[in-house]
Design a protein around this nucleic acid. Structure first.
Lengths: 353, 353
DNA sequence: GTTTAGCACTCACAAGGTAAGAGTGCTAAA
DNA sequence: TTTAGCACTCTTACCTTGTGAGTGCTAAAC
């Protein structure tokens, strides 16, 4: 649906939305607009225009004598046509760069930092999935004798994901035997995908695997299988506290809803794989995608890393009344920073944003 | 302070507290007690006794014509003297055992499962710290070439903790060189504490470390230093959603308080190291320990694992009005299950509870 | 001395009623 | 097309009142 709006209507719509976002959440009255932004026409004219915008479905009313609030369509129009697309200030960019620089070598801190920084920058809740390769591939195995009959298996995958498992054996193991076995696996399995594992180590003309080696292989296969479909489960979030001050969350029911979205991925489950395969920043406003759970929330997501290689998703979740320009800039900028980090780690195949 | 209460007063106090916990959070009236528990004395007598218990500081009033609610001291008396110390039902124990059995070899899942199970069993928020050794000791190092000049360093500590770091070098590295260096470190550093690291690898009559080896050693030292004081930061929690239905959290401010406790460790920071060095289940009711933040919350903590060896802390946090018997049983049982898991992993030095 | 019936008293809470204020929508004139 | 003016609507805050729950006290009963 393409809407042709007169310049004046565009201007008024934009002001209503900006005012509503900053007020915060107070319905916007014609008189307020007139006074605050010194418009050239009277409040009656503004009222006429507001009524027109309401007929177009971009604004609504809570009751006859209340000011206007934007509809989902109104926000959508704002995001696509009216919004000032300003980047984060150089000062903020430097601060963020600096924070990431400090943890650049600590892979397990990345997503925590990303979520924390994003939440604080966008003033909303943030979600981040860890970077994962499109395909799960074996990289390295380590077997460490922890205690006579207990072995710690550390599996490193091609994208840097690490899984640790413990194995209990009948007989005591020497570290030497374990290291040899690990080396054997490392030589044979380098780069293997899940379906290649078996074939690489069980070759017709060779002695079969020992029971322990068989067990280890099974554990590796199971771990890799588990990681294949795990994107949603690994959703990390931050910034809940940031949001609870907002008027939308004055009643606890709303907080519960939000928790279900953030902790259990209800409602954003489908959006994440979608964002992983898209370019640029995705904005979903309210119930646009037919998700009833999300009717009162907006989600701004972006992939970081490179599609098909190692990549993850990060984004912001908040009430539909959210500062879109700032949120979008934040998501865009932080995803570019994360992309650069990944590029550094996996070689310069990726390009900087 | 030792309080001598007549049997009747004890009985009434116990009923008031149980009723208040289950009502939920409704002040308890004399008439209610009489009807619901068919006491042998009249409501007037009960009122006299209630007034006496109030004089002793075990109960209070919100206003003259309101029923009684317990004070912190009342809860304390209840927990120490009146509570029925029932264990979890065999059925529940089996379910919990079963859940832990399923992830017994996946170390990184333990604390997630523990928090989830504890929260659901105790119907409150749960906190769990990962198992950590009293002393941080080197166990194993792995250096993996990820990309020409990028190396993934995987450090395994003696307690099973894994840290991953990336290193960037000037020159490309061969996996063979890396493996050799790792092996060299593994031989020299086995079991070394932080202050021994340096001495083990820089021996007077040997060639000095290569720049890369020096860098790796620094990273190891930094990681170990970081882990030394990290108990609080690693606090994992679950069950927030579980609690929001309770009347205590009807207003969002309370939710914010709770979040600050769970996410930032405000108010429980000191309790955790304390629990780590104590035997048995610790119960802190309301502001007993002078923590103003915690005035309206109770904490039930227990160590799991063995003091001085590998151990962690788990527990329950809720409003002072919490089902103490059940929470305490849950914490006790799950800490014993976790202790058993640890014992299995690190040998039979620990005893089952 | 302990228990209990009886009753006055207190306080929270809900219901109803009113007034004030914000803001629209419409009309008619500019 | 714009705008002044005003009636109308609806929310919100505030008060008032009534009701019910529940205590605390007193005086009689056990």
């Amino acid at each position: 649906m393409i809407l042709e709006l007169t310049e004046r209507r565009q201007r008024i719509l934009k002001l209503v939305i900006q005012e509503y976002i900053e007020s915060p959440a107070k319905p916007v009255a014609s008189e307020t607009l007139l006074k605050k932004y010194q418009l050239q026409y009277s409040s009656a004219t503004i009222r006429n225009e507001l009524a027109a915008l309401e007929d177009l479905g971009l604004l609504t009313h809570l009751h006859t004598s209340a000011g206007r609030i934007p509809t989902d369509a109104g926000y959508r129009y704002f995001v696509e046509n009216l919004m000032d697309r300003q980047a984060l200030s150089p000062q903020e960019q430097r601060t963020i760069q600096h924070q990431f620089y400090q943890v650049r070598s600590e892979l397990d801190q990345w997503i925590h930092l990303a979520a924390a920084v994003l939440a604080r920058t966008a003033h909303n809740a943030a979600v981040v999935t860890p970077p994962r390769a499109y395909e799960v591939r074996f990289k390295h195995l380590e077997l460490i004798a922890i205690y006579e009959t207990v072995v710690l298996l550390v599996l490193v995958l091609h994208d840097g994901t690490i899984k640790q498992q413990s194995l209990t054996t009948e007989q005591p193991n020497s570290q030497e035997d374990l290291s040899n076995l690990a080396q054997y696996f490392n030589q044979r399995l380098e780069g293997a995908t899940l379906d290649l594992l078996e074939g690489r180590v069980t070759v017709p003309d060779e002695p079969p695997l020992t029971p322990f080696a068989r067990m280890a292989l099974d554990v590796i296969a199971r771990a890799m299988r588990q990681l294949e479909g795990q994107i949603n489960e690994a959703l990390h979030h931050d910034g809940l506290l940031e949001m609870l001050g907002q008027p939308e969350f004055a009643q606890v029911d709303r907080v519960k809803q939000l928790l279900r979205i953030l902790e259990q991925g209800v409602g954003i489950g489908t959006l994440i794989p979608q964002a992983l395969n898209s370019e640029g920043v995705q904005v979903v406003i309210g119930g646009e995608h037919g998700q009833d759970t999300m009717r009162e929330y907006s989600v701004i997501l972006s992939r970081y890393g490179r599609s098909g290689e190692v990549a993850g998703v990060l984004g912001v979740i908040g009430p539909t009344r959210m500062p879109y320009p700032r949120s979008i800039s934040s998501v865009r900028y932080i995803s570019s920073v994360m992309s650069d980090l990944l590029a550094e780690l996996y070689g310069e195949r990726s390009s900087s944003a």
